[in-house]
Amino acid sequence: MKFKLISVGAAVLVLGGCASLMKETVSKRAPFDLNCDAGSITIQQLGYRTYGVSGCDKRATYVLQGPCSGPGSQCLAVMNSNVDEG
């Protein structure tokens, strides 16, 4: 029972760190695509590896591709929509 709790705890930490890295990846890419200051951008997780970004009266959706964990990960944020202005 103790081992199971430790395993679940470790999985939560890994997934939490992974989610943080994924959001960070989007936050580095979105300001360029939206032509908007990073401090003005809001990021919302829409699903697994899918994020909605809004800022400067623009919105876009990003999907993460590639591994987002481990040393030397090649996680990429790829815009999966047109930039919605308005």
Rank of each mutant, 00 (worst) to 15 (best):
M1G: 06
M1V: 06
K2H: 06
F3E: 10
F3G: 01
F3K: 12
F3N: 04
K4Q: 03
L5M: 08
L5H: 07
L5S: 08
L5K: 11
I6P: 00
S7A: 12
S7W: 01
S7Q: 05
V8R: 11
V8T: 11
G9Q: 09
G9F: 14
G9P: 03
A10L: 15
A10N: 05
A11Q: 07
L13G: 09
V14F: 13
V14L: 15
V14W: 10
L15C: 10
L15K: 08
L15T: 11
L15I: 14
G16V: 02
G16Q: 09
G17K: 14
G17T: 11
G17H: 12
A19R: 06
A19D: 00
S20C: 02
S20R: 03
S20V: 04
L21G: 03
M22W: 00
M22H: 04
K23I: 03
K23M: 05
K23C: 02
E24K: 13
T25H: 11
V26E: 04
V26N: 01
K28W: 06
K28I: 04
A30K: 02
P31E: 08
P31H: 09
F32R: 15
F32Q: 15
F32I: 14
D33L: 13
L34T: 02
N35F: 07
C36S: 05
C36R: 09
C36T: 04
D37P: 03
D37C: 06
D37I: 07
A38K: 15
A38Y: 11
A38H: 09
A38V: 13
G39V: 06
I41S: 02
I41W: 04
I41K: 06
T42D: 09
T42V: 11
T42L: 10
Q44K: 15
Q44S: 12
Q44A: 15
Q44Y: 12
Q44G: 05
Q45D: 01
Q45T: 08
Q45G: 07
Q45V: 09
G47I: 03
Y48D: 02
Y48F: 13
R49M: 15
R49Q: 12
T50H: 05
T50V: 12
T50E: 11
Y51K: 08
Y51I: 10
Y51G: 03
Y51H: 08
V53M: 09
V53Y: 00
S54M: 05
S54V: 00
S54E: 11
S54K: 04
G55M: 03
K58Q: 01
K58A: 10
K58I: 02
R59Y: 01
R59N: 03
R59C: 01
R59A: 13
A60R: 05
A60E: 05
T61S: 08
T61M: 08
Y62R: 00
Y62T: 02
V63H: 07
V63R: 10
L64H: 04
L64P: 01
G66C: 06
C68L: 00
G70S: 10
G70C: 05
G72Q: 06
G72Y: 06
Q74M: 11
C75S: 09
L76P: 00
A77N: 08
V78M: 09
V78K: 12
V78G: 03
M79W: 09
M79E: 14
M79Y: 02
M79S: 12
M79L: 12
N80L: 07
N80H: 13
S81V: 06
S81P: 01
S81M: 06
S81K: 07
N82P: 05
V83N: 01
D84S: 13
D84Q: 14
G86R: 10
G86S: 08
